[in-house]
């Protein structure tokens, strides 16, 4: 996919020559056209903090959130979990810009995960992948 290639390119630009340089505080990204994807950095908060959630379970939970609020149309949205950290339960999601409101609202309105209270905290929302990366 072309967008995947663009991401890889950006990633390589971030780390020149494999050397660990301090990333700049900000980076200016100019988008000529509206960006096709939006990136959401989310963290799942659970009532019982010892619960383990694997990446597959998270993806399934996100799809069930979408199905719960928007039905089949919501479940058909293409959502990708690009990165996931099991320790902190934080993930980086990619979604088509058209589906951003649907995904975000279904994450917001989800109040329980396996019969325990939960909350998705959206830490960051961006149209450019590199910016969501660099500020982490």
């Amino acid at each position: 996919m072309c967008s995947q290639a663009a991401e890889n390119e950006m990633e390589s630009r971030m780390k020149p020559d494999g050397e660990k340089t301090e990333p700049p505080g900000y980076q200016r990204v100019v988008l000529k056209n509206a960006s096709p994807h939006h990136y959401l950095k989310v963290r799942l908060l659970l009532e019982d903090e010892s619960t383990r959630v694997s990446a597959v379970e998270l993806k399934r939970f996100i799809i069930s959130c979408l199905r719960g609020l928007h039905g089949e149309v919501g479940a058909a949205l293409e959502v990708d979990v690009l990165k996931y950290d099991e320790e902190t339960l934080s993930a980086l999601l990619r979604v088509h810009s058209r589906g951003l409101v649907k995904l975000w609202s279904s994450l917001t309105l989800q109040g329980s995960y396996q019969n325990q209270a939960c909350a998705f905290r959206v830490l960051q929302r961006d149209a450019a992948y590199s910016r969501s990366r660099s500020r982490s």
Binding site: L45, E47, V101, W104, S105, L107, T108, L109, G111, A117, C118, A119, R121, V122, R125
Partner: peptide, 18 residues
């Protein structure tokens, strides 16, 4: 009633669209 029922201001803004 509980802390987990609170949502961030930008989440609510997005919810308003819904």
């Amino acid at each position: 009633e509980k802390a987990l029922e609170l949502r961030g201001p930008y989440d609510i803004t997005n919810l308003g669209v819904l």
